[in-house]
Amino acid sequence: MHEMSLVQSVVETIEQAAHTHHFRRVKTVWLEIGELSSVEPEAMVFCFDAVARNTIVDGAKLEIVSVPGEAWCPHCARTVPIEDLIAQCPDCGACPLDITDGRQMRIQELEVE
Score class of each variant (00 low, 15 high):
M1N: 03
E3D: 08
S5D: 08
V7H: 13
Q8T: 03
S9C: 07
V10M: 11
V10H: 01
V11M: 04
E12Q: 15
E12M: 13
T13C: 11
T13P: 05
E15K: 09
E15S: 14
Q16P: 08
A17R: 02
A17E: 14
A18G: 06
A18K: 04
T20G: 08
T20K: 11
H21D: 11
H21V: 10
H22P: 00
R24V: 05
T28I: 12
V29A: 05
V29D: 01
L31V: 02
I33H: 00
E35Y: 01
E35V: 00
L36D: 02
S38F: 07
E40F: 13
E42W: 11
E42A: 08
A43T: 04
M44L: 13
M44F: 10
V45D: 03
F46L: 07
F48S: 08
D49T: 12
D49W: 11
D49Q: 15
A50Q: 04
A50V: 02
V51M: 00
A52S: 15
A52M: 10
I56W: 06
V57I: 00
D58C: 11
G59E: 11
G59S: 12
G59R: 09
G59M: 11
S66I: 02
P74D: 04
H75C: 09
C76Y: 04
T79R: 01
T79H: 05
P81M: 01
P81E: 05
E83R: 14
L85Q: 05
I86S: 12
A87E: 00
Q88G: 03
Q88K: 15
D91I: 01
D91H: 03
D91A: 04
P96R: 09
L97A: 06
L97Q: 01
T100C: 11
T100M: 04
I107K: 08
E109Y: 09
L110I: 13
E111S: 01
E111H: 12
E111M: 12
V112I: 15
V112L: 15
E113N: 15
